[in-house]
Nucleic acid binder design. Structure first.
Length: 905
DNA sequence: GAGTTGCATGGGC
DNA sequence: TGCCCATGCAACT
């Protein structure tokens, strides 16, 4: 290549001096120049470059063509473009990348491609090599793998450190691509990766790590630095390489010998003549979701040695190792790298990400069984033919060795693979449901390495602490990720997904959603259920946005982005009181706000900015209605019209809940409540953990693994006598459920009796009695409807009269008021609601009763005693009120509602 | 009775 | 529709 002079981007002419075509408007990037810039190419040249046929196209007649010492294939060695396509041999001559890779693999006695992990960063490095020379990167003397990542600290490659990189293989083109979808890097960096990955379409840009490590003083002139060259294969060479099996056919080989007792995964890989696996092949093995070979996956759990790698792994199991991860692994395993491997070949050590799995509740539970994805198990673990399986040595991120039983259960006509005995390891790593365990292989030796990533919902403070701790170890690094780089011990502490920056921006909710989407993908509907719960339990971002108000007296600057105007405020917004905006009869824009004390809705000008807590007394816009005693001007119908629009999600769910059997709803609430109670216990449950913890078919008294599992997946099992928050909450919730059932039963009975005795009375009563509305005594909205529907177990209707934001988090809630929610304490408005409802119901009962025993009923009920029937009466109200809270409010409200139950029960 | 084991079940993809 | 796999749960220890 001769185009090494001139500006890379200033000219409108293609940078390729052999071309001189005009660049397109969006010039495509080519190789990195010595200046650090990227050559800008026309489409044709860029395509040629990306497809690895640049030299074939433009340098066909140029000097520098040499033949591969192994396969004889001609490789251009005379330009910067082809610098990655070959490697220089110590004894002279060159090898094409394919042969070099093969030899490296054979030499290291590894069935794994030696350089998979370096792919992204090395790509970047390679870009840099052309500009910076080798000495900068390789240092002097042998560079062990574990030091290799430090080579990546170029300004360019650094950002990619924070990205999660995985690969997929486009078999149609034989292209390894960085799966940019899953990169969390900023778009520009992401684009950069994409660009380069495209540039490497055929390249696969594999490194013989030996080449890197053992050559410390390579310059850019690879000819002069035998053994130092990184090579980029050209597509033809790859395709033509006869020793390279077709993509997707190479499998991580494991020994069929499973009778040799304890083995590491290494054992199986020490086959005498492993096929020369290309990294590309490995990728296709690892992520062969695109495998189009037509080979069917081995079914019925009967893996064949020749087919194990063809299992199509679901993306959710693709390892998302970051470079930091790798470095940390390497950093964590000096013993592995320097001791266990016991020779200088350690410089060839490669940690190959195999797969990862988010721990389910079962996995992290006490049973100690980690369910392995079948395809992963069959692809990466030794084949087992007996259900008993075999012991498997695994080293954790601290280098500690564990022995798990790798086995399977027949399941239908298939198998279910599990690792047994993982509890100590899980606990040692302090993992819980939602965290991710990663499996990787250390080559040579094939040691199985188990890493982990904590769910990202660890508290920000925790992360801050991590950052601080780590930064202390490496003051030059400021970010968490960077800090982690310097401190491998934090490997399991902080997620390295690159979302941290986003976490810093927002709430757990956003993060959890992001994480769920990214980590679990479309994993489970349970997740979506949880998301729905989140929607109902918490504000959506959109809704939250609606509550954010500009700081007083702040004028926004308006920014137009893609045609949309955005208001920008220099100061953080404040959280305003939720209100309902509307237009009155005169067309004036107004808003309705609800008093914190009396729950009456007050009309306010639309411009009114309310504090999070607002009462009638603050109604300076309408002094006449600045007292709670003043009636509400909003009619029931009007309010009814307004409210449904406030939260479509909640309304939708409300409707759905109506249609569901009562107990189902209640039991779902039980789940939610239990989870929330766990949250309230102070152990912030990772969102992903919530996702994996929630499970169907809960029943009262359920002793399943989820229900009995303590929040962290460890600790004693809950007993009947357990008084922990979870148990108490579940018990309360159960009582509520029972009360509700009693109530329903009694209502039916009462209804029957009423019809018999006073057929015309109920309607009148319903009309007259606003029931548990908070607006007793004034224009309570649509009392009839509320009563009728409320009595039909639809507390949401009732709730709708109190807040348009039912089913959402009360952003005004003060966490420090948590104790108020405990049983027996004043639970605030809900308590009032309850009392109000009780009194009202008793009055109703008095009216209904023909007087035979009503007095005693009331008396006894009010005194807390009474006959069974009287208890029922009381229970009816309690149950109804409980439903209000149980169904449609967040944990806080749920617990609130539970409190009276305990108190009165 | 508690813990363990191994298979069954069923939701989700 | 079939498979995967999280979880349930009965049998067993």
């Amino acid at each position: 290549m001769t185009s090494t002079s001139g500006a890379a981007s200033s000219s409108k002419i293609c940078f390729n001096s052999d071309c001189k075509d005009l660049k397109s408007e969006r010039a495509r990037k080519g190789w990195r120049l010595r200046t650090g810039e990227l050559a800008e190419l026309c489409d044709r040249c860029a395509s040629a470059f990306e497809e690895g046929r640049f030299c074939d196209t433009f340098h066909l007649n140029a000097s520098g063509w040499r033949s591969c010492e192994s396969c004889g294939k001609r490789v251009h060695c005379g330009c910067i473009v082809s610098v990655y396509a070959f490697t220089l041999l110590d004894a002279g001559g060159i090898e094409c990348i394919a042969c070099a890779r093969k030899n490296v693999v054979l030499g290291s006695n590894s069935s794994w491609p030696p350089s998979l992990l370096f792919h992204p960063p090395l790509s970047e490095r390679l870009k840099d090599y052309s500009a910076k020379g080798w000495s900068q990167l390789a240092g002097s003397g042998p560079v062990p793998w574990r030091q290799a990542p430090s080579l990546f600290n170029s300004p360019i490659s650094q950002p990619e450190w924070h990205s999660k990189v995985c690969y997929e293989v486009d078999l149609s083109t034989g292209i390894d691509r960085l799966n940019a979808d899953r990169l969390s890097t900023p778009s520009l960096e992401k684009k950069k990766i994409e660009d380069f990955s495209e540039r490497l379409m055929n390249g696969t840009l594999k490194l013989g790590t030996r080449d890197i490590h053992e050559n410390g003083n390579a310059g850019i002139n690879c000819e002069e630095q035998p053994g130092s060259c990184l090579t980029k294969s050209q597509q033809p060479s790859l395709k033509e390489e006869p020793s390279n099996p077709p993509l997707g056919l190479s499998v991580p080989y494991t020994s069929p010998d499973e009778a040799n007792g304890q083995i590491g995964v290494s054992g199986p890989h020490l086959r005498p003549n492993p096929p020369p696996p290309l990294a590309k092949q490995f990728h296709s093995n690892l992520h062969n979701g695109l495998d189009s070979s037509g080979e069917t996956q081995i079914r019925n759990g009967r893996p064949r040695p020749d087919g194990r790698g063809r299992n199509q792994l679901f993306p959710r199991y693709w390892p998302r190792f970051t470079d930091q991860d790798l470095q940390q692994i390497s950093g964590e395993y000096p013993l592995i790298l320097w001791g266990i491997l016991d020779n200088w070949e350690c410089s060839n050590s490669v940690i190959t990400p195999l797969f990862e799995k988010m721990l389910s509740a079962s996995d992290a539970g006490r049973i100690g069984r980690l369910v392995l994805p079948k395809k992963c198990a069959e692809a990466y673990f030794p084949p087992i033919s007996q259900p008993e399986g075999l012991p498997l040595k695994v080293q954790d991120s601290k280098g500690k060795e564990w022995i798990f039983q790798f086995r399977f259960w027949p399941n239908n006509n298939s198998r279910m693979y599990v690792l047994e005995g993982v509890t100590p390891c899980i606990q040692n790593m302090q993992l819980q449901a939602g965290d991710v365990v990663t499996f990787s292989r250390l080559e040579p030796g094939g040691k199985l390495v188990m890493g982990c990533r904590k769910a990202s919902t660890a508290s920000a403070s925790e992360q801050d602490n991590e950052a601080k701790n780590n930064s202390s170890a490496s003051p030059s690094f400021s970010s968490i990720n960077q800090a982690e780089l310097a401190d491998p011990t934090s490997w399991s502490k902080v997620d390295k997904s690159g979302y941290i920056a986003k976490e810093a921006l927002g709430t757990k909710l956003a993060v959890s959603r992001k994480r769920k989407n990214s980590t679990l993908g479309s994993k489970s509907k349970r997740l979506r259920i949880d998301n729905e719960d989140l929607i109902e339990l918490k504000l959506t971002w959109e809704e939250a946005q609606g509550l954010l108000r500009p700081p007083p007296n702040h004028v926004p600057s308006v920014v137009v982005i893609e045609g949309f105007e955005f208001e920008e405020y220099e100061d953080a917004p404040i959280l305003g009181k939720p209100t309902i905006f509307a237009t009155d009869n005169s067309g004036e824009k107004i808003q309705w706000a609800q008093c914190e004390d009396c729950f009456k809705w007050r009309r306010l000008p639309s411009s009114a900015l309310l504090p999070s807590k607002w009462t009638c007394a603050s109604n300076s816009w309408d002094p006449e209605r600045s007292f709670c005693s003043v009636a509400q001007e909003l009619t029931a119908e009007q309010l009814d019209d307004l409210l449904p629009h406030c939260n479509p999600a909640a309304s939708k769910k409300m409707k759905a809940a109506k249609q569901e059997p009562e107990n189902v709803d209640a039991l779902e609430g039980l789940d939610t409540l239990a989870n929330l109670a766990i949250l309230g216990e102070g152990e912030a449950l990772p969102a992903s953990s919530q996702a994996t913890t929630k499970h169907p078919r809960h029943r009262p008294g359920c002793s399943c693994i989820v229900c009995i599992q303590p929040p962290s997946g460890k600790g004693p099992k809950h007993k009947q006598t357990c008084t922990c928050n979870v148990c108490q909450t579940v018990k309360r919730r159960f009582r509520t459920l029972m009360l509700r059932r009693e109530k329903k039963q009694s209502q039916k009975e009462a209804e029957t009796t009423r019809k018999k005795q006073q057929p015309s009375l109920p309607d009148k009563l319903l009309d007259d009695d606003p029931l548990p509305s908070t607006n007793a005594g004034n224009s309570s909205p649509n009392p009839k409807k509320l009563v009728s529907e409320g009595s039909d177990d639809d507390p949401n209707r009732i709730k709708s009269s109190t807040s348009p934001f039912k089913g959402q988090i009360d952003l005004n809630i003060q966490p420090e008021r948590e104790e108020e929610l405990s049983p027996g304490s004043d639970s605030g408005s809900m308590m009032r609601l309850l009392q109000d409802a009780t009194e009202r119901y008793l009055r109703q009962q008095r009216m209904l009763s023909s007087g035979v025993n009503s007095d005693s009923t009331v008396t006894q009920a009010q005194s807390g005693g009474g006959t069974e029937g009287e208890k029922t009466s009381s229970s009816v109200n309690l149950g109804a009120s409980h439903q209000d809270a149980d169904r449609d409010h967040s944990a806080v409200f749920s617990i609130k509602s539970s409190a009276p139950t305990s108190a009165t029960g």
